[in-house]
Design a protein around this nucleic acid. Structure first.
Lengths: 225, 225, 225, 225
DNA sequence: GATGAATGAGAATTCATTCAT
DNA sequence: TATGAATGAATTCTCATTCAT
């Protein structure tokens, strides 16, 4: 992904220009934490960013344009997941690796919640460029995850589809989790992760049970089956 | 859910009024099959429904209001799922019942795709009334599903959470499936369902293999390992 | 002023019809106690009166029409003032009569505040029928008042103009007095009346000082000059 | 009263912006000379000012908002009255000063008739910001006038209330005077002023007779009794 | 005597967008 | 690099008003 270096007027951006552009992006994201996408206006974003709306148009075509830029940026941030996938997954550490994968995935959603939510929202409605970037950023990852599954349990009939399903569950849970943040729902996030992991391990042949590592947060004792 | 009997002008609705109201709802849903929610306008909807936009405002406050009414209506249509949950789930028929549940769930999404997508989209953005109706319509269902899981596999640590996770996967898959409908994606839908079912059965202790029943639509039958 | 006996559809009004018509008038007046005339709508008035807006049009052409009817009704209620003017005003009872006149005038405003305010508001903006009814209801009264003035102090250069001026003061004070009703402003109303009466008596040659009759309300003792 | 420096879009107003804003205010006032307040529309005002209605909303929220700005401006124009109140009022010149005060007051109404009428109309209906500005602009003035009264006639029981009453009369007369301008009513304005002045002087102890100074316009001079 | 139902007409309002500076 | 100023073009929205029942 090449660096954006010129604004929409074709001018090379200097330090100040880049700062303004970044500010608009940041402000847009932070506004979306509390407001609905469909009600966000250029003037409001500009005002919040401390520039006039004319200035907005120096850097972006419209709000969607800003958000696409944000989504692109967020898409670069998959390294932590790849790191895990590049390690060895064995019957012995599968439980551990699966847990790390799920938790890292959640962390990425926490970090890029707004961008990912917008990406999915647009993609689900058929917006092509968001659909593409979702496919592109997910495909290889799910491919790799599917391979891990296949390798851990060679008898799986659809390892790749399984990866897709697991991913569907993860992203759906991650997308919902922060709504109405309360101690109660926070707690249950861990339980949901535990359930998800249990599910995955079961299909992988459940090589080893997985005790949650930071087991402090209210997940109940687990009678070994 | 009590019957709506008065329009926004406080008039009692007669047959004609109810028909007009319904027409606006239907038209809104069908337009959303091909257009983005945030670009839908009252004037367009009204025109498409064959009424003036003033008439629109006799029955609804805005587009969101129409959609909420649609979501409410769709929420009443859960009987098919409840029917399955009210049957006996045994080790012998678990595979069968799980498959029926998943497929029925998919059918409901196919029938109410637009309403459910909008419901989730608004809920995910924190819109309270959509959030509430989502919780309300899902809660008891997942409770019941969790019980089935617990009963089939008493050693499950988090049967209820498992139901939530399974539901997350189902709805995420169902929500995405129609984008760019092609023979290819249709096929993969069956594969994804198979994978999902495999996943569920695995965690339930995989009592019996599940061969897809209506195997007509190109999903490969694969004799178990 | 002949009785209104037919509605705008030309139908003779029976008991029920007259009741509905009256209800609309009453409701309009009472709404104007707390809302601005220019924001009042037919639908709101109708709703408040418990009828549909179609029904409104059976009895009145528009809101102004209702109000004009109200103003006409209020205009019939000048007898208390005429009663005082028909009595004898002598040097001895002048103070007493002036005070009665002023206080009775205030009572009429308290009773018909809304109608009179609307009448003046429309008249001041040049609305002819309101202008006329104001002139008609005031003319003879002021004529008579001027005569009393002339009779009590024959040296007055402009007794009639004086009556007009006095009336201007009275109505202006009466119109403002209820704004922000507090114990404080209520009290000051009596003081203002005292001042007004003092003014009138002064120009009448101040035949006898006028001690406020119900002297309870905080008006100070009055050193004789 | 601090200078308005930003428009409703938050932009700093430059020369051009200020001019446009002023033009809208001027046009609004002049339209109200011949039209009723409640029928004035934003589109009409904008058109008359030679701008689009969008431009109107750059500077004002609605018509009331324009008018409030006008009223604020008019409220600054009380210097001529203050000038008179800062002079010495003696038994010898009282008649002269009172006449000057009354006539100057009338001139201010002639100059700001529309603003003042709207201010009173809104205030009388309970509109708070108009109520406040009326109180604020009148309070000190009446205070000062009351002091003059008290000083000229120390035996007055309610000099301040007297000032209020006198003001009520003045403003009521001034407000009505232009309705149906005719030679006849013009003449009577002078007579009414004369009557008012006579009234005031009477209560002040009538130190000296007051012959109208600019006696050209048909008001009869009447040598005192 | 009353009112559902619908709407025409126009007014309010919003907003993205342009352009000269 | 930034922004006042202005607006076109919709869109929303309101309301009085009509008419058939």
């Amino acid at each position: 992904m090449e660096q954006v270096t010129r604004n929409l007027h074709g001018q090379k951006m200097g330090r100040k220009g880049r700062a303004t552009r970044k500010r608009i992006m940041d402000v847009t994201l932070s506004m979306l934490e509390h407001r609905s996408y469909k009600d966000l206006t250029v003037s409001e974003v500009a005002a919040e960013a401390g520039v006039s709306s004319s200035t907005f148009y120096v850097y972006f075509k419209d709000i969607e344009d800003v958000l696409f830029a944000c989504v692109q940026e967020a898409a670069l941030d998959l390294d932590p997941l790849w790191a895990i996938l590049k390690e060895e997954w064995t019957a012995e550490n599968a439980a551990h690796q699966v847990r790390r994968f799920v938790e890292t995935y959640n962390e990425l959603w926490d970090k890029h919640r707004v961008e990912l939510r917008v990406r999915n929202l647009e993609a689900d409605q058929g917006n092509l460029r968001f659909l593409n970037i979702r496919v592109e950023t997910t495909r290889d990852l799910l491919q790799a995850l599917g391979k891990k599954f296949a390798q851990l349990n060679p008898s799986l009939r659809h390892p790749h589809q399984l990866a897709i399903v697991v991913h569907a569950a993860m992203s759906s849970l991650a997308a919902q989790h922060d709504i109405g943040i309360t101690a109660a729902t926070r707690q249950s996030r861990h339980k949901l992760n535990d359930a998800l992991i249990e599910l995955i391990l079961a299909v992988l042949g459940n090589p080893h049970s997985s005790a949650p590592e930071g087991a402090a947060e209210g997940s109940e004792r687990q009678p070994r089956q």
